[in-house]
Design a protein around this nucleic acid. Sequence first.
DNA 1: ACACCGATATCGAATTTTGATATTATGGTA
DNA 2: TACCATAATATCAAAATTCGATATCGGTGT
Lengths: 96, 96
Amino acid sequence: MKYREFLMLHTLHHAEKGPITGTFMMKELRNHGYKISPGTMYPLLHEMEIKGLLKSRWEVRNKKRVRIYEITKKGKKALEEGRKKVAELCRELLGE
Amino acid sequence: MKYREFLMLHTLHHAEKGPITGTFMMKELRNHGYKISPGTMYPLLHEMEIKGLLKSRWEVRNKKRVRIYEITKKGKKALEEGRKKVAELCRELLGE
DNA sequence: ACACCGATATCGAATTTTGATATTATGGTA
DNA sequence: TACCATAATATCAAAATTCGATATCGGTGT
């Protein structure tokens, strides 16, 4: 499980709760100690859409045009898989 | 928390249980789904020694000369810090 | 129409990882 | 002793990834 997968996992986690945008995710990740640059975030979201984990549409929010991403069925599956890996990681590093 | 920090954390985790070597850690990480090349592993161990998280010595095992790494007091502290971060990660992604 | 603002997109530079290859010491053989 | 095979460690150029400054794009107010 590489770094980029963790970023995807976080993204899916938030997308599961509700629609997300690029700036929202950057702030959210920042709050959890992940300083992600736009040059990583936007291509990441795009890649996730290509992979079918998210689907996007344009929308106007706060008088700004933003791209809204929503999680797909495939994305939810990937999220569950990712959670299993994190659970394993916890068992491994934090004990049973 | 970047990828390299996760690798360090895993390494400290194993070093806490007992002395480790480069090849041992590569195999161990492989078993947990992290495919690390020697070009990452050895410089990582060296960096960790420079940072004072591990200390090393040469030893002969199975008729081969290996570098043995042991965790230091500073390494144990770093391990605890890392575990806290993983625990946060789990709470965040897996729920309370 | 125009300027400003903020979200998204882009891309060359900087950083990190890879993986093939080199180095090194050991044990065995002659 | 000299030489070879083996395996662990070390190295480094190439590939992959991330950064971050800059560009683009559309909405809003004047």
